[in-house]
Amino acid sequence: MWNDYPKRGQYRETPIPNELASSVRTLSYERDPDEPIVDVEPNSIYRWVKRAGERRYAATGDEGWTLLDVHDLRRTWGGHLLWNCGALPAVVMSWGGWEDWETFRSHYLGMMSPAAAEREREKISFVPGTVESDPGADQVFEPTVQSRSLY
C-alpha cells in the first residue's frame, strides 16, 4: 500500500489476516489496481476510530476507550505481531514503517521477560548459570506500563 497520510509517499507491504485479504480481494474485484480500495479522507478514518472508541466506552464503561485514536491501531498491530506472534522486532519495524530504533524499543518492546532471557542464555555455551524465571511465560517481550495496547 502507498501511505499518503501522514508519511506521504512511503510504500509499505504488511501481512494481514486471511479474512481481511479475502475482503480486500472482493472489494477490489474488477477495479483498476491503482485505485484505492477505501477512498476516504483521513479525517473520516479519525472519526470512525473515535466513534468505535465511544461505542466501546458505552459498552464497557472503561474510560481508556475515550482515548483511542488511529495511532493506537498501528501500535496494537505492531504489539500483536511482537508479543503474540513472536515476529522479530526488525521485521515489525520494516512492515510498520518505524525507523527510529530507540523509540520503537522504548514504546513497543517493553521489558525483556525473564523466560526469554533464560532461553537465550541457554543458547550460549560460555554463559554459565541460570536466571530465575516463570516457566509458564513464553513471550519474548512483556509490554511496559507506558505501552497502550488493545491486546
Rank of each mutant, 00 (worst) to 15 (best):
D100K: 11
S28Y: 02
L67P: 00
P114K: 15
D4H: 14
P42L: 05
L82T: 02
L68Y: 03
W98G: 03
R25Y: 10
S44A: 14
E99V: 14
I16D: 06
N84F: 08
L27D: 05
P33Y: 09
Y108A: 04
C85A: 08
S23K: 12
D138G: 04
G136D: 15
R105I: 00
R148M: 05
P114Y: 08
I37C: 08
E63D: 14
V92Q: 05
S133K: 11
R75K: 14
D100T: 10
T60L: 05
L81P: 02
D134T: 04
R74T: 04
W95T: 07
P33F: 08
T76P: 04
N43H: 13
R74G: 08
L27F: 13
A116T: 01
G97A: 04
L88A: 13
V91H: 08
D138P: 00
Y29D: 11
P6A: 12
R12A: 04
L68N: 02
S106F: 07
G61E: 09
H71A: 10
D69N: 15
N3A: 09
V38T: 06
P128G: 09
K123T: 13
A52K: 11
V92R: 03
P15Q: 11
R121D: 07
A87T: 06
P36T: 03
H71E: 07
Y46F: 05
M112C: 09
A137P: 00
S28E: 03
L20V: 14
M1T: 12
H71Q: 10
H80D: 12
Y151E: 02
S44R: 13
D4A: 13
I37M: 05
P143F: 08
M1V: 11
R12H: 14
R74N: 02
L73Y: 04
T60K: 00
E142T: 15
V131Y: 06
D72R: 02
M1W: 09
L68S: 04
T144W: 01
L150E: 01
T14P: 00
V92H: 03
Y108R: 02
P143A: 13
H71C: 06
G129I: 05
R47A: 12
D138A: 08
K7Y: 09
E120R: 15
V92G: 02
R119P: 03
Y57K: 00
Y11R: 15
R105F: 10
P114A: 15
A59P: 01
F126R: 05
E63F: 03
V127P: 00
I37A: 06
V70G: 08
Y151L: 12
A58F: 04
R47E: 11
E118I: 06
S28C: 06
Y46N: 10
P6S: 13
S22M: 06
V24W: 10
Y57T: 07
L81E: 01
G136A: 10
E118D: 07
A52S: 13
E30P: 01
F104K: 07
K50Q: 07
G136N: 11
G9A: 06
P143D: 06
P143S: 10
R8S: 14
W48K: 02
Y108S: 04
P135C: 05
D69Q: 10
W48R: 05
V145P: 00
L82K: 02
W65G: 01
L20K: 01
P17C: 09
I124Y: 12
L73D: 04
T130A: 11
A90G: 04
G78R: 00
D62E: 15
E122T: 08
F104W: 06
